[in-house]
Design a protein around this nucleic acid. Structure first.
Length: 563
RNA sequence: GUGCCUGUAGCUCAGCAGGAUAGAGCAACGGCCUUCUAAGCCGUGGGUCAGGGGUUCGAAUCCCUUCAGGCACGCCA
Protein backbone atom coordinates (compact mmCIF):
# COMPACT_ATOMS: atom_id res chain seq x y z
CA UNK A 1 0.00 0.00 0.00
CA UNK A 2 1.47 3.30 -1.14
CA UNK A 3 -1.27 5.72 -0.26
CA UNK A 4 -3.87 6.13 2.45
CA UNK A 5 -6.15 7.63 -0.15
CA UNK A 6 -6.08 4.35 -2.03
CA UNK A 7 -7.17 2.51 1.07
CA UNK A 8 -9.92 4.99 1.87
CA UNK A 9 -11.20 4.97 -1.69
CA UNK A 10 -11.40 1.20 -1.55
CA UNK A 11 -13.21 1.29 1.78
CA UNK A 12 -15.76 3.85 0.65
CA UNK A 13 -16.32 2.13 -2.65
CA UNK A 14 -16.92 -1.17 -0.91
CA UNK A 15 -19.20 0.32 1.69
CA UNK A 16 -21.30 2.07 -0.97
CA UNK A 17 -21.56 -0.99 -3.17
CA UNK A 18 -22.62 -3.16 -0.25
CA UNK A 19 -25.15 -0.57 0.85
CA UNK A 20 -26.68 -0.39 -2.61
CA UNK A 21 -26.80 -4.18 -2.88
CA UNK A 22 -28.54 -4.33 0.46
CA UNK A 23 -31.01 -1.62 -0.54
CA UNK A 24 -31.81 -3.58 -3.68
CA UNK A 25 -32.41 -6.70 -1.61
CA UNK A 26 -34.72 -4.73 0.68
CA UNK A 27 -36.56 -3.45 -2.33
CA UNK A 28 -35.61 0.13 -1.49
CA UNK A 29 -33.80 0.51 -4.80
CA UNK A 30 -34.25 -1.10 -8.20
CA UNK A 31 -31.37 -3.05 -9.75
CA UNK A 32 -28.70 -0.61 -10.86
CA UNK A 33 -25.82 -0.75 -13.30
CA UNK A 34 -23.40 1.06 -11.04
CA UNK A 35 -21.06 3.64 -12.62
CA UNK A 36 -17.54 4.27 -11.35
CA UNK A 37 -17.91 5.65 -7.85
CA UNK A 38 -16.24 9.07 -7.70
CA UNK A 39 -14.71 9.95 -4.38
CA UNK A 40 -13.50 13.47 -3.77
CA UNK A 41 -12.43 15.82 -1.07
CA UNK A 42 -15.14 18.38 -0.28
CA UNK A 43 -14.01 21.96 -0.33
CA UNK A 44 -15.64 22.77 2.98
CA UNK A 45 -14.33 21.08 6.06
CA UNK A 46 -17.86 20.94 7.44
CA UNK A 47 -18.76 18.54 4.67
CA UNK A 48 -16.50 15.85 6.03
CA UNK A 49 -13.24 14.33 4.90
CA UNK A 50 -14.47 12.66 1.73
CA UNK A 51 -17.65 12.65 -0.27
CA UNK A 52 -19.29 10.98 -3.23
CA UNK A 53 -21.90 12.10 -5.71
CA UNK A 54 -23.03 8.58 -6.55
CA UNK A 55 -26.64 9.26 -5.57
CA UNK A 56 -26.86 12.04 -8.15
CA UNK A 57 -25.27 9.92 -10.82
CA UNK A 58 -27.83 7.15 -10.61
CA UNK A 59 -30.90 9.39 -10.50
CA UNK A 60 -32.14 8.27 -13.89
CA UNK A 61 -31.69 4.57 -13.22
CA UNK A 62 -33.15 4.66 -9.72
CA UNK A 63 -36.04 6.91 -10.75
CA UNK A 64 -35.92 8.70 -7.41
CA UNK A 65 -34.81 12.10 -6.17
CA UNK A 66 -31.05 12.23 -5.49
CA UNK A 67 -31.43 13.09 -1.81
CA UNK A 68 -33.83 10.20 -1.34
CA UNK A 69 -31.36 7.81 -2.97
CA UNK A 70 -28.60 9.12 -0.76
CA UNK A 71 -30.73 8.59 2.35
CA UNK A 72 -31.43 5.01 1.35
CA UNK A 73 -27.76 4.33 0.75
CA UNK A 74 -26.77 5.85 4.07
CA UNK A 75 -29.39 3.80 5.92
CA UNK A 76 -27.84 0.64 4.57
CA UNK A 77 -24.20 1.52 5.14
CA UNK A 78 -22.17 -0.77 7.34
CA UNK A 79 -19.03 1.08 8.36
CA UNK A 80 -17.58 -1.69 10.46
CA UNK A 81 -13.87 -2.26 9.95
CA UNK A 82 -13.32 1.03 8.13
CA UNK A 83 -12.00 4.49 8.98
CA UNK A 84 -15.53 5.84 8.60
CA UNK A 85 -16.90 7.43 11.74
CA UNK A 86 -20.00 9.21 10.49
CA UNK A 87 -21.94 9.45 7.25
CA UNK A 88 -24.41 12.13 6.28
CA UNK A 89 -26.43 13.38 3.35
CA UNK A 90 -26.04 17.02 2.35
CA UNK A 91 -26.81 19.51 -0.36
CA UNK A 92 -28.44 18.14 -3.51
CA UNK A 93 -27.53 14.56 -2.58
CA UNK A 94 -23.90 14.30 -1.61
CA UNK A 95 -22.95 11.55 0.78
CA UNK A 96 -20.33 12.87 3.15
CA UNK A 97 -17.93 10.70 5.09
CA UNK A 98 -16.41 11.81 8.35
CA UNK A 99 -13.39 9.73 9.20
CA UNK A 100 -11.93 8.71 12.49
CA UNK A 101 -8.53 10.32 13.09
CA UNK A 102 -7.02 6.87 12.88
CA UNK A 103 -6.50 7.34 9.12
CA UNK A 104 -4.23 10.29 9.86
CA UNK A 105 -2.15 8.42 12.39
CA UNK A 106 -1.82 5.60 9.91
CA UNK A 107 -0.65 8.15 7.34
CA UNK A 108 2.24 9.09 9.59
CA UNK A 109 3.18 5.46 10.09
CA UNK A 110 3.13 4.97 6.34
CA UNK A 111 5.38 7.98 5.73
CA UNK A 112 7.76 6.76 8.41
CA UNK A 113 7.84 3.31 6.85
CA UNK A 114 8.23 4.45 3.24
CA UNK A 115 10.66 7.30 3.95
CA UNK A 116 12.20 8.59 0.70
CA UNK A 117 9.85 6.34 -1.23
CA UNK A 118 6.75 7.96 0.26
CA UNK A 119 4.74 9.48 -2.56
CA UNK A 120 5.74 6.92 -5.15
CA UNK A 121 2.91 5.16 -6.91
CA UNK A 122 2.76 2.57 -9.63
CA UNK A 123 0.41 3.72 -12.34
CA UNK A 124 3.14 3.24 -14.95
CA UNK A 125 3.65 -0.46 -14.24
CA UNK A 126 7.11 -0.32 -15.74
CA UNK A 127 6.10 0.84 -19.18
CA UNK A 128 8.88 2.50 -21.17
CA UNK A 129 8.59 6.24 -21.62
CA UNK A 130 10.95 8.62 -23.30
CA UNK A 131 10.92 12.28 -22.42
CA UNK A 132 12.72 14.31 -25.05
CA UNK A 133 13.27 17.90 -24.04
CA UNK A 134 15.35 21.03 -24.62
CA UNK A 135 16.97 19.61 -27.78
CA UNK A 136 18.32 23.10 -28.39
CA UNK A 137 19.92 23.89 -31.71
CA UNK A 138 23.66 23.45 -31.27
CA UNK A 139 24.19 26.62 -33.25
CA UNK A 140 24.15 28.88 -30.21
CA UNK A 141 23.67 29.22 -26.45
CA UNK A 142 20.65 28.10 -24.39
CA UNK A 143 17.90 30.69 -24.10
CA UNK A 144 14.92 31.22 -21.80
CA UNK A 145 12.70 28.89 -23.80
CA UNK A 146 15.24 26.13 -23.30
CA UNK A 147 15.39 27.02 -19.60
CA UNK A 148 11.67 26.59 -19.15
CA UNK A 149 11.52 23.48 -21.30
CA UNK A 150 14.45 22.06 -19.35
CA UNK A 151 12.92 22.54 -15.91
CA UNK A 152 9.56 21.29 -17.11
CA UNK A 153 10.84 18.29 -19.04
CA UNK A 154 13.18 17.17 -16.30
CA UNK A 155 10.44 17.36 -13.69
CA UNK A 156 7.92 15.58 -15.91
CA UNK A 157 10.50 12.81 -16.27
CA UNK A 158 11.00 12.71 -12.49
CA UNK A 159 7.28 12.60 -11.80
CA UNK A 160 6.90 9.69 -14.20
CA UNK A 161 9.78 7.89 -12.50
CA UNK A 162 7.98 8.26 -9.18
CA UNK A 163 4.84 6.93 -10.83
CA UNK A 164 6.28 3.62 -11.85
CA UNK A 165 7.37 4.34 -15.42
CA UNK A 166 10.70 3.29 -16.89
CA UNK A 167 11.88 6.73 -17.97
CA UNK A 168 14.60 7.77 -20.42
CA UNK A 169 15.63 11.41 -20.75
CA UNK A 170 16.87 12.30 -24.19
CA UNK A 171 18.40 15.28 -25.95
CA UNK A 172 18.04 15.37 -29.75
CA UNK A 173 21.12 16.99 -31.24
CA UNK A 174 20.25 18.75 -34.49
CA UNK A 175 23.69 18.29 -36.00
CA UNK A 176 22.61 17.71 -39.58
CA UNK A 177 20.57 19.08 -42.38
CA UNK A 178 19.88 22.59 -43.49
CA UNK A 179 20.60 24.01 -40.10
CA UNK A 180 24.20 22.86 -40.16
CA UNK A 181 24.52 24.33 -43.65
CA UNK A 182 23.46 27.68 -42.29
CA UNK A 183 25.76 27.30 -39.33
CA UNK A 184 28.68 26.65 -41.69
CA UNK A 185 27.82 29.58 -43.93
CA UNK A 186 27.53 31.88 -40.92
CA UNK A 187 30.84 30.75 -39.46
CA UNK A 188 32.56 31.11 -42.80
CA UNK A 189 31.22 34.62 -43.29
CA UNK A 190 32.44 35.69 -39.84
CA UNK A 191 35.79 34.02 -40.45
CA UNK A 192 36.29 35.89 -43.71
CA UNK A 193 35.10 39.15 -42.18
CA UNK A 194 37.63 38.80 -39.37
CA UNK A 195 40.50 38.28 -41.78
CA UNK A 196 39.49 40.36 -44.80
CA UNK A 197 37.45 43.09 -43.15
CA UNK A 198 33.76 43.59 -42.47
CA UNK A 199 33.06 44.70 -46.02
CA UNK A 200 34.79 41.79 -47.71
CA UNK A 201 31.68 39.64 -47.62
CA UNK A 202 28.08 40.39 -46.92
CA UNK A 203 26.69 38.39 -44.01
CA UNK A 204 23.99 36.04 -45.37
CA UNK A 205 20.48 37.20 -44.67
CA UNK A 206 19.31 33.94 -43.14
CA UNK A 207 22.58 33.31 -41.27
CA UNK A 208 22.85 33.08 -37.48
CA UNK A 209 23.27 36.64 -36.28
CA UNK A 210 24.49 35.80 -32.78
CA UNK A 211 27.69 37.24 -31.39
CA UNK A 212 28.80 33.75 -30.47
CA UNK A 213 29.38 32.97 -34.15
CA UNK A 214 31.90 35.84 -34.30
CA UNK A 215 33.53 34.50 -31.12
CA UNK A 216 33.96 31.11 -32.74
CA UNK A 217 35.61 32.69 -35.79
CA UNK A 218 37.97 34.72 -33.61
CA UNK A 219 38.83 31.73 -31.46
CA UNK A 220 39.52 29.61 -34.50
CA UNK A 221 41.84 32.22 -35.95
CA UNK A 222 43.66 32.56 -32.64
CA UNK A 223 44.23 28.82 -32.56
CA UNK A 224 44.78 27.92 -36.19
CA UNK A 225 45.41 31.17 -38.05
CA UNK A 226 44.28 32.00 -41.55
CA UNK A 227 45.12 28.80 -43.42
CA UNK A 228 41.48 28.22 -44.31
CA UNK A 229 41.63 31.16 -46.73
CA UNK A 230 43.49 28.90 -49.16
CA UNK A 231 40.91 26.13 -48.97
CA UNK A 232 37.69 25.66 -50.90
CA UNK A 233 34.54 27.06 -49.37
CA UNK A 234 33.28 23.56 -48.67
CA UNK A 235 36.45 22.56 -46.82
CA UNK A 236 36.43 25.83 -44.94
CA UNK A 237 32.89 25.38 -43.69
CA UNK A 238 33.52 21.80 -42.69
CA UNK A 239 36.62 22.78 -40.72
CA UNK A 240 34.77 25.57 -38.94
CA UNK A 241 31.77 23.37 -38.12
CA UNK A 242 34.06 20.61 -36.86
CA UNK A 243 35.65 23.20 -34.63
CA UNK A 244 32.58 25.04 -33.34
CA UNK A 245 29.91 22.33 -33.13
CA UNK A 246 31.54 20.16 -30.43
CA UNK A 247 32.24 23.31 -28.45
CA UNK A 248 28.59 24.34 -28.62
CA UNK A 249 27.35 20.89 -27.69
CA UNK A 250 29.72 20.75 -24.75
CA UNK A 251 28.60 24.19 -23.62
CA UNK A 252 24.96 23.11 -23.79
CA UNK A 253 25.76 19.90 -21.95
CA UNK A 254 27.67 21.68 -19.20
CA UNK A 255 24.99 24.34 -18.84
CA UNK A 256 22.34 21.69 -18.38
CA UNK A 257 24.43 19.80 -15.84
CA UNK A 258 24.77 23.02 -13.87
CA UNK A 259 20.99 23.30 -14.12
CA UNK A 260 20.66 19.82 -12.59
CA UNK A 261 19.66 18.02 -15.77
CA UNK A 262 21.28 14.71 -16.66
CA UNK A 263 20.34 12.91 -19.87
CA UNK A 264 20.40 9.19 -20.46
CA UNK A 265 21.02 9.71 -24.13
CA UNK A 266 22.23 12.39 -26.53
CA UNK A 267 20.81 11.31 -29.85
CA UNK A 268 22.42 12.75 -32.96
CA UNK A 269 20.24 13.62 -35.90
CA UNK A 270 23.21 12.91 -38.18
CA UNK A 271 23.07 9.23 -37.20
CA UNK A 272 19.74 8.92 -39.01
CA UNK A 273 21.28 9.82 -42.34
CA UNK A 274 23.19 6.56 -42.85
CA UNK A 275 20.11 4.46 -43.47
CA UNK A 276 17.14 5.22 -41.23
CA UNK A 277 15.74 8.10 -43.22
CA UNK A 278 15.84 5.97 -46.39
CA UNK A 279 14.22 3.07 -44.55
CA UNK A 280 11.50 5.32 -43.24
CA UNK A 281 10.85 6.75 -46.68
CA UNK A 282 10.53 3.22 -48.04
CA UNK A 283 7.99 2.33 -45.39
CA UNK A 284 5.96 5.42 -46.22
CA UNK A 285 6.20 4.58 -49.89
CA UNK A 286 5.07 0.98 -49.38
CA UNK A 287 2.15 2.14 -47.29
CA UNK A 288 1.19 4.56 -50.03
CA UNK A 289 1.76 7.81 -48.18
CA UNK A 290 4.14 9.45 -50.66
CA UNK A 291 3.45 11.53 -53.73
CA UNK A 292 6.00 12.92 -56.19
CA UNK A 293 5.50 16.31 -57.70
CA UNK A 294 7.49 19.39 -58.65
CA UNK A 295 10.66 17.38 -58.39
CA UNK A 296 10.20 16.68 -54.68
CA UNK A 297 8.74 13.86 -52.60
CA UNK A 298 5.81 14.77 -50.38
CA UNK A 299 3.80 13.21 -47.57
CA UNK A 300 0.28 12.75 -48.95
CA UNK A 301 -1.76 15.19 -46.87
CA UNK A 302 -5.11 13.84 -47.91
CA UNK A 303 -4.25 10.26 -47.08
CA UNK A 304 -2.62 11.26 -43.79
CA UNK A 305 -5.54 13.45 -42.80
CA UNK A 306 -3.67 16.74 -43.03
CA UNK A 307 -4.63 20.00 -44.59
CA UNK A 308 -1.88 19.90 -47.16
CA UNK A 309 1.01 17.86 -48.45
CA UNK A 310 4.38 18.19 -46.72
CA UNK A 311 7.73 18.06 -48.43
CA UNK A 312 9.93 15.25 -47.15
CA UNK A 313 12.65 15.10 -49.82
CA UNK A 314 13.54 18.38 -51.46
CA UNK A 315 14.19 18.94 -55.14
CA UNK A 316 17.89 18.85 -54.36
CA UNK A 317 17.55 15.37 -52.88
CA UNK A 318 18.09 16.39 -49.26
CA UNK A 319 15.56 15.33 -46.65
CA UNK A 320 13.64 18.02 -44.77
CA UNK A 321 13.58 18.36 -41.00
CA UNK A 322 10.26 16.56 -41.00
CA UNK A 323 11.64 13.54 -42.84
CA UNK A 324 14.42 13.28 -40.29
CA UNK A 325 11.93 13.74 -37.46
CA UNK A 326 9.71 10.93 -38.73
CA UNK A 327 12.74 8.66 -38.95
CA UNK A 328 13.73 9.77 -35.44
CA UNK A 329 10.35 8.87 -34.03
CA UNK A 330 10.33 5.60 -35.88
CA UNK A 331 13.60 4.95 -34.11
CA UNK A 332 12.09 5.84 -30.73
CA UNK A 333 9.01 3.66 -31.11
CA UNK A 334 9.99 0.82 -33.39
CA UNK A 335 13.76 0.45 -32.98
CA UNK A 336 14.09 1.21 -29.30
CA UNK A 337 10.64 0.05 -28.24
CA UNK A 338 9.32 2.95 -26.19
CA UNK A 339 5.66 2.51 -25.32
CA UNK A 340 5.12 6.23 -24.97
CA UNK A 341 7.10 9.23 -26.15
CA UNK A 342 6.72 12.69 -24.65
CA UNK A 343 8.21 15.66 -26.47
CA UNK A 344 8.47 19.16 -25.04
CA UNK A 345 8.20 21.87 -27.63
CA UNK A 346 7.93 25.63 -27.50
CA UNK A 347 4.41 26.74 -28.36
CA UNK A 348 5.67 28.23 -31.61
CA UNK A 349 6.05 24.65 -32.89
CA UNK A 350 2.43 23.74 -32.30
CA UNK A 351 1.78 23.56 -36.02
CA UNK A 352 4.06 20.55 -36.12
CA UNK A 353 1.96 18.52 -33.65
CA UNK A 354 -0.76 17.37 -36.02
CA UNK A 355 1.81 16.62 -38.73
CA UNK A 356 3.91 14.41 -36.50
CA UNK A 357 0.89 12.58 -35.10
CA UNK A 358 -0.35 11.94 -38.62
CA UNK A 359 3.11 10.76 -39.63
CA UNK A 360 3.11 8.29 -36.73
CA UNK A 361 -0.12 6.75 -38.00
CA UNK A 362 1.46 6.63 -41.44
CA UNK A 363 4.32 4.47 -40.19
CA UNK A 364 1.93 2.32 -38.20
CA UNK A 365 2.30 3.79 -34.71
CA UNK A 366 -0.81 4.94 -32.87
CA UNK A 367 -0.77 8.71 -32.51
CA UNK A 368 -1.93 8.33 -28.92
CA UNK A 369 1.50 7.04 -27.98
CA UNK A 370 3.04 10.39 -28.84
CA UNK A 371 2.40 13.21 -26.37
CA UNK A 372 3.50 16.72 -27.15
CA UNK A 373 3.73 19.11 -24.22
CA UNK A 374 3.69 22.64 -25.54
CA UNK A 375 4.92 25.41 -23.32
CA UNK A 376 4.49 29.13 -23.77
CA UNK A 377 7.45 31.42 -23.95
CA UNK A 378 8.98 33.34 -21.08
CA UNK A 379 9.29 37.00 -20.23
CA UNK A 380 11.89 38.01 -17.67
CA UNK A 381 10.89 40.92 -15.48
CA UNK A 382 13.10 43.15 -13.39
CA UNK A 383 12.20 46.45 -11.77
CA UNK A 384 8.78 46.02 -13.30
CA UNK A 385 10.14 45.96 -16.84
CA UNK A 386 10.81 43.24 -19.35
CA UNK A 387 14.49 42.36 -19.46
CA UNK A 388 15.85 41.15 -22.76
CA UNK A 389 19.59 41.63 -22.48
CA UNK A 390 22.25 40.43 -20.14
CA UNK A 391 23.90 43.32 -18.34
CA UNK A 392 27.28 41.65 -18.42
CA UNK A 393 27.54 40.64 -22.06
CA UNK A 394 24.94 42.91 -23.63
CA UNK A 395 23.50 39.86 -25.40
CA UNK A 396 20.26 37.99 -25.05
CA UNK A 397 20.02 36.44 -21.61
CA UNK A 398 21.26 32.86 -21.65
CA UNK A 399 20.56 30.06 -19.19
CA UNK A 400 23.99 30.68 -17.70
CA UNK A 401 23.20 34.35 -17.16
CA UNK A 402 19.95 33.43 -15.44
CA UNK A 403 21.64 30.92 -13.15
CA UNK A 404 24.32 33.49 -12.30
CA UNK A 405 21.64 35.96 -11.27
CA UNK A 406 18.97 33.88 -9.52
CA UNK A 407 20.53 30.46 -8.91
CA UNK A 408 19.45 26.98 -9.83
CA UNK A 409 16.84 26.50 -7.09
CA UNK A 410 14.85 29.61 -7.94
CA UNK A 411 15.03 28.96 -11.68
CA UNK A 412 13.83 25.37 -11.42
CA UNK A 413 11.10 26.26 -8.94
CA UNK A 414 9.81 29.32 -10.80
CA UNK A 415 9.67 27.55 -14.14
CA UNK A 416 7.55 24.87 -12.51
CA UNK A 417 5.10 27.18 -10.77
CA UNK A 418 2.87 27.70 -13.77
CA UNK A 419 1.13 25.17 -15.96
CA UNK A 420 3.01 24.67 -19.19
CA UNK A 421 0.23 26.19 -21.28
CA UNK A 422 0.28 29.55 -19.51
CA UNK A 423 2.56 32.41 -20.36
CA UNK A 424 5.24 32.81 -17.74
CA UNK A 425 6.39 36.09 -16.29
CA UNK A 426 9.60 35.39 -14.43
CA UNK A 427 10.12 37.98 -11.68
CA UNK A 428 13.88 38.13 -11.22
CA UNK A 429 13.65 40.46 -8.23
CA UNK A 430 11.34 38.07 -6.41
CA UNK A 431 13.52 35.08 -7.28
CA UNK A 432 16.41 36.48 -5.27
CA UNK A 433 14.34 38.01 -2.49
CA UNK A 434 14.90 36.46 0.92
CA UNK A 435 11.38 36.70 2.30
CA UNK A 436 8.12 34.86 2.51
CA UNK A 437 7.16 36.48 -0.80
CA UNK A 438 9.67 34.21 -2.44
CA UNK A 439 8.10 30.75 -2.57
CA UNK A 440 11.45 28.97 -2.83
CA UNK A 441 12.67 30.52 0.41
CA UNK A 442 9.33 29.95 2.05
CA UNK A 443 9.53 26.23 1.40
CA UNK A 444 13.22 25.89 2.15
CA UNK A 445 12.74 27.84 5.35
CA UNK A 446 10.14 25.36 6.54
CA UNK A 447 12.63 22.57 5.99
CA UNK A 448 15.36 24.47 7.81
CA UNK A 449 13.04 25.18 10.74
CA UNK A 450 12.26 21.48 11.02
CA UNK A 451 15.93 20.61 11.03
CA UNK A 452 16.49 23.18 13.72
CA UNK A 453 13.83 21.67 15.99
CA UNK A 454 15.46 18.28 15.59
CA UNK A 455 18.90 19.71 16.24
CA UNK A 456 17.80 21.62 19.33
CA UNK A 457 16.25 18.48 20.79
CA UNK A 458 19.34 16.46 20.01
CA UNK A 459 21.36 19.00 21.98
CA UNK A 460 19.12 18.07 24.92
CA UNK A 461 19.72 14.39 24.16
CA UNK A 462 16.16 13.86 23.02
CA UNK A 463 15.83 11.53 20.05
CA UNK A 464 12.67 10.41 18.35
CA UNK A 465 11.17 7.08 19.28
CA UNK A 466 9.87 4.44 16.87
CA UNK A 467 6.39 4.28 15.37
CA UNK A 468 5.63 1.29 17.63
CA UNK A 469 6.32 3.32 20.76
CA UNK A 470 4.90 6.72 19.92
CA UNK A 471 1.33 7.66 20.87
CA UNK A 472 0.12 9.54 17.81
CA UNK A 473 -3.44 9.86 19.14
CA UNK A 474 -2.20 12.83 21.15
CA UNK A 475 -2.16 14.79 17.90
CA UNK A 476 -5.57 16.44 17.95
CA UNK A 477 -5.00 20.16 17.39
CA UNK A 478 -6.50 21.49 14.14
CA UNK A 479 -3.06 22.63 12.95
CA UNK A 480 -1.68 19.16 13.55
CA UNK A 481 -4.55 17.43 11.79
CA UNK A 482 -4.47 19.82 8.83
CA UNK A 483 -0.78 19.21 8.36
CA UNK A 484 -1.22 15.44 8.42
CA UNK A 485 -4.11 15.64 5.95
CA UNK A 486 -1.84 17.55 3.63
CA UNK A 487 0.91 14.96 3.96
CA UNK A 488 -1.61 12.20 3.24
CA UNK A 489 -2.38 13.71 -0.15
CA UNK A 490 1.15 13.46 -1.55
CA UNK A 491 0.83 10.17 -3.46
CA UNK A 492 -2.35 11.52 -5.01
CA UNK A 493 -0.51 14.67 -6.10
CA UNK A 494 2.16 12.57 -7.80
CA UNK A 495 -0.51 10.55 -9.56
CA UNK A 496 -2.28 13.65 -10.83
CA UNK A 497 0.96 15.29 -11.92
CA UNK A 498 1.90 12.20 -13.90
CA UNK A 499 -1.50 11.90 -15.51
CA UNK A 500 -1.65 15.54 -16.54
CA UNK A 501 2.10 15.92 -17.17
CA UNK A 502 1.97 19.02 -14.99
CA UNK A 503 4.67 19.16 -12.30
CA UNK A 504 3.41 22.62 -11.36
CA UNK A 505 1.00 20.78 -9.07
CA UNK A 506 3.97 19.79 -6.96
CA UNK A 507 5.37 23.27 -6.45
CA UNK A 508 1.92 24.35 -5.31
CA UNK A 509 1.63 21.30 -3.14
CA UNK A 510 4.93 21.79 -1.37
CA UNK A 511 4.09 25.46 -0.79
CA UNK A 512 0.94 24.28 0.95
CA UNK A 513 2.86 21.75 3.03
CA UNK A 514 5.19 24.56 4.08
CA UNK A 515 2.23 26.83 4.91
CA UNK A 516 0.56 24.13 7.01
CA UNK A 517 3.83 23.46 8.77
CA UNK A 518 4.42 27.14 9.55
CA UNK A 519 0.90 27.33 11.00
CA UNK A 520 1.58 24.27 13.10
CA UNK A 521 4.89 25.74 14.19
CA UNK A 522 3.22 28.89 15.44
CA UNK A 523 0.37 27.09 17.17
CA UNK A 524 2.15 24.10 18.68
CA UNK A 525 5.48 23.72 20.37
CA UNK A 526 7.58 20.61 20.36
CA UNK A 527 10.42 21.40 22.72
CA UNK A 528 9.43 21.70 26.33
CA UNK A 529 6.17 19.78 25.98
CA UNK A 530 5.38 16.81 28.17
CA UNK A 531 7.22 13.76 26.88
CA UNK A 532 4.38 11.81 25.19
CA UNK A 533 3.16 14.86 23.32
CA UNK A 534 6.69 15.96 22.48
CA UNK A 535 7.35 12.58 20.90
CA UNK A 536 4.10 12.59 18.94
CA UNK A 537 4.83 16.05 17.56
CA UNK A 538 8.44 15.17 16.86
CA UNK A 539 7.17 12.22 14.84
CA UNK A 540 4.94 14.55 12.85
CA UNK A 541 7.86 16.93 12.34
CA UNK A 542 10.00 14.13 10.96
CA UNK A 543 7.24 13.06 8.60
CA UNK A 544 6.83 16.63 7.36
CA UNK A 545 10.56 16.82 6.76
CA UNK A 546 10.38 13.61 4.73
CA UNK A 547 7.62 14.92 2.51
CA UNK A 548 9.19 18.34 1.89
CA UNK A 549 12.53 16.70 1.18
CA UNK A 550 10.92 14.19 -1.18
CA UNK A 551 9.22 16.91 -3.21
CA UNK A 552 12.31 19.11 -3.34
CA UNK A 553 14.47 16.13 -4.32
CA UNK A 554 12.05 15.33 -7.10
CA UNK A 555 12.26 18.91 -8.34
CA UNK A 556 16.04 18.72 -7.80
CA UNK A 557 15.99 21.71 -5.51
CA UNK A 558 18.16 21.96 -2.42
CA UNK A 559 16.58 21.28 0.99
CA UNK A 560 18.86 23.21 3.36
CA UNK A 561 19.26 22.19 7.02
CA UNK A 562 19.99 25.75 8.07
CA UNK A 563 19.29 29.19 6.66
C1' G B 1 -8.45 33.91 -44.06
C1' U B 2 -7.71 28.81 -41.50
C1' G B 3 -6.03 26.38 -37.13
C1' C B 4 -4.00 26.14 -31.98
C1' C B 5 -3.28 28.42 -27.03
C1' U B 6 -4.82 32.03 -23.40
C1' G B 7 -8.81 35.25 -20.89
C1' U B 8 -10.93 33.82 -13.10
C1' A B 9 -9.89 39.46 -7.16
C1' G B 10 -5.97 45.71 -8.19
C1' C B 11 -1.41 42.15 -9.71
C1' U B 12 0.54 36.90 -10.55
C1' C B 13 -2.06 32.58 -10.97
C1' A B 14 -4.77 27.64 -8.96
C1' G B 15 -9.32 25.26 -9.81
C1' C B 16 -11.41 23.12 -15.75
C1' A B 17 -12.21 13.83 -16.31
C1' G B 18 -19.33 18.96 -14.45
C1' G B 19 -20.86 19.20 -8.16
C1' A B 20 -22.16 22.20 -2.34
C1' U B 21 -21.27 29.54 -0.45
C1' A B 22 -15.39 30.23 -6.81
C1' G B 23 -9.62 29.67 -4.00
C1' A B 24 -4.16 30.93 -2.94
C1' G B 25 -0.07 34.28 -2.93
C1' C B 26 1.21 39.36 -3.53
C1' A B 27 -0.48 44.33 -2.75
C1' A B 28 -3.88 47.17 1.30
C1' C B 29 -5.42 47.37 6.43
C1' G B 30 -5.25 45.49 11.82
C1' G B 31 -2.90 42.24 15.33
C1' C B 32 1.18 38.33 17.35
C1' C B 33 8.25 37.56 19.39
C1' U B 34 10.94 36.90 28.02
C1' U B 35 9.38 30.11 24.83
C1' C B 36 12.13 25.22 18.89
C1' U B 37 14.84 30.78 13.34
C1' A B 38 9.36 36.93 12.85
C1' A B 39 12.99 34.38 6.16
C1' G B 40 7.15 33.04 10.43
C1' C B 41 1.83 33.22 12.12
C1' C B 42 -3.43 35.09 12.88
C1' G B 43 -7.39 38.28 11.15
C1' U B 44 -10.22 41.96 7.63
C1' G B 45 -11.80 43.79 3.00
C1' G B 46 -11.83 42.53 -2.30
C1' G B 47 -15.26 38.73 -8.08
C1' U B 48 -20.51 40.04 -14.14
C1' C B 49 -15.00 33.23 -13.68
C1' A B 50 -14.13 38.22 -21.06
C1' G B 51 -19.65 38.73 -23.28
C1' G B 52 -23.93 35.89 -25.11
C1' G B 53 -26.53 31.30 -26.04
C1' G B 54 -27.05 25.89 -25.29
C1' U B 55 -26.69 20.74 -22.77
C1' U B 56 -27.67 19.23 -17.42
C1' C B 57 -30.95 18.04 -11.33
C1' G B 58 -26.29 21.13 -11.28
C1' A B 59 -21.49 24.84 -15.67
C1' A B 60 -15.53 28.72 -14.15
C1' U B 61 -15.42 23.48 -15.98
C1' C B 62 -18.71 20.44 -21.69
C1' C B 63 -20.82 22.42 -26.79
C1' C B 64 -21.83 26.76 -30.12
C1' U B 65 -20.89 31.93 -30.93
C1' U B 66 -18.79 36.96 -30.33
C1' C B 67 -14.76 39.87 -28.45
C1' A B 68 -9.55 40.63 -26.79
C1' G B 69 -4.27 38.99 -26.58
C1' G B 70 -0.45 35.47 -28.30
C1' C B 71 1.32 31.88 -31.87
C1' A B 72 1.43 28.93 -36.34
C1' C B 73 0.22 28.29 -41.40
C1' G B 74 8.10 27.65 -45.82
C1' C B 75 11.42 22.63 -50.58
C1' C B 76 13.05 26.77 -42.11
C1' A B 77 13.59 23.98 -37.74
Amino acid sequence: MYSIYQKINQQIEMVIKNAIDKAVENGQLVEIDLPQIMIEKPREEAFGDFSTNIAMQIVKQAKKAPRQIAEVIVQNINKEGTFINKVSVAGPGFINFYLDNEWLYETLSLIDERKEKYGEVNIGKGSKVMVEFVSANPTGPLHMGNARGGALGDCIASVLEKSGYDVTREFYVNDAGNQMEKFGISLEARYLQQLNGEESIEFPEDGYQGEDIIDHAKDYINEYGSALLQKTSEERRKALIDYALPKNIKRIHDGLVRYGIYYDCWFKESSLYASEIDETMNILKERGYLVEKEGAIWLDGEKAGLEKDEVLIRQNGFPTYMAADIAYHRNKFLKRGFDTVINLWGADHHGHVARMKAAMEAIGVSKDRLHIVLFQLVNLYQNGEIRKMSKRSGRAISLDDLLDEVGVDAARFFFNMKTSGSHLDFDMDLAVEQSNNNPVFYVQYAHARICNIIKKLQEENIERISSDEVNLTLLVQPEELNLIKRLAAYPEEITMSAQTLEPSRLTHYVMNVAADFHSFYNACRVRGEQEDLLQARLFLVYCTKTVIKNVLDLLRIDAPERM
